[in-house]
């Protein structure tokens, strides 16, 4: 039903919000149009690692989790899983988590997905590395759901930073990016603008301007990334607040004996 979905996503958005992948998938209704399929595939590729972590946290070994994550995506892309009407459809993140938890608890679906095989979504090499990455995750006292949310937020930040890094690299500003990156954090300011400016060979005003621009573009990129995973652009800020809560919640601090 692409003709209607494109009409939706071409509708003028408020300037700061890009058209969203997830809403394109949703408005296609059944996820089986090529456009919806591609859009879904693209966001899945970006966010497979939080799902892998969730599976691991549910007690599966690396090899099992590898297969299950892969199968889950195959299931998601092949089965008309988007038809399952649910309020959590508004957020791709919640939709994925709910679907995955159903998937894991449903032997029938799992076997079916396994049988269907084929359709690998995540590059195998990345999945191979997943275990090494998982081992580096701090021991957490929180639930698998919470771990998923946290890793999701981290993935989101990483994806945003990666986009920016590539962008600044294109303009030969990798060094500047590296130097200014820490000031993306809330309330972070260099101990001395003068010192930083002289180190970078710039004047103080230009450094301030660069930090300002970096922050603005980080905010935009992050909003765009989030907007791809929600159906309603006005909820982006709500999402950011949610992630702040997730990342600052005390359950995330490593347990000290």
């Amino acid at each position: 039903m692409g003709s209607f979905s494109t009409r939706d996503s071409n509708a003028p958005n408020p300037g700061t919000f890009p058209s969203t992948h997830w809403s394109a998938v949703l408005s296609a209704g059944s996820g089986d149009t090529p456009a919806a399929h591609n859009a879904l595939g693209r966001i899945c590729e970006k966010y497979w690692y939080p799902l892998y972590v969730y599976v691991r946290r549910r007690g599966y070994r690396h090899s099992e989790a590898q297969d299950l994550t892969q199968d889950f995506f195959a299931f998601l892309l092949q089965k008309e899983s988007l038809r399952v009407a649910a309020p959590e459809k508004g957020r791709f993140r919640s939709f994925l988590l709910t679907s995955l938890s159903h998937f894991l608890s449903n032997e029938w679906d799992r076997q079916n997905a396994a049988k269907r095989g084929g359709g690998r979504v995540i590059p195998l090499s990345q999945l191979e590395d997943a275990d090494a990455r998982f081992q580096l995750e701090p021991a957490q006292s929180c639930s698998a759901d919470r771990a998923f949310e946290k890793i999701w937020a981290m993935t989101l930040l990483e994806n945003s930073l990666r986009r920016m890094e590539e962008d600044w690299k294109k303009h030969d500003k990798s060094r500047l990016f590296e130097a200014l990156k820490p000031f993306l954090m809330a309330g972070a300011e260099p101990p001395s603008y003068e010192e930083l400016a002289s180190r970078l060979g710039m004047n103080v005003g230009a450094v301030k301007m660069a930090i300002f621009r970096l922050r603005r573009s980080f905010r935009d990129v992050l909003c765009q990334e989030i907007a791809q995973t929600v159906d309603d652009p006005t909820t982006v800020e709500e999402e950011i607040r949610h992630f702040i809560r997730i990342l600052s919640s005390p359950e995330n601090t490593p347990q000290t004996p």
């Binding site: 937020a153 981290m154 930040l157 990156k181 820490p182 993306l184 954090m185 809330a186 309330g187 972070a188 301030k208 301007m209 300002f212 922050r215 603005r216 980080f218 905010r219 992050l222 909003c223 800020e237 950011i240 607040r241 992630f243 702040i244 990342l247 600052s248």
Partner: peptide, 16 residues
């Protein structure tokens, strides 16, 4: 980088 402060930063600065 502190992820919590990083994402918190996204909600703040926008003008200069």
């Amino acid at each position: 980088l502190c992820p919590a402060c990083l994402i918190g930063g996204a909600l703040q600065q926008s003008a200069m």
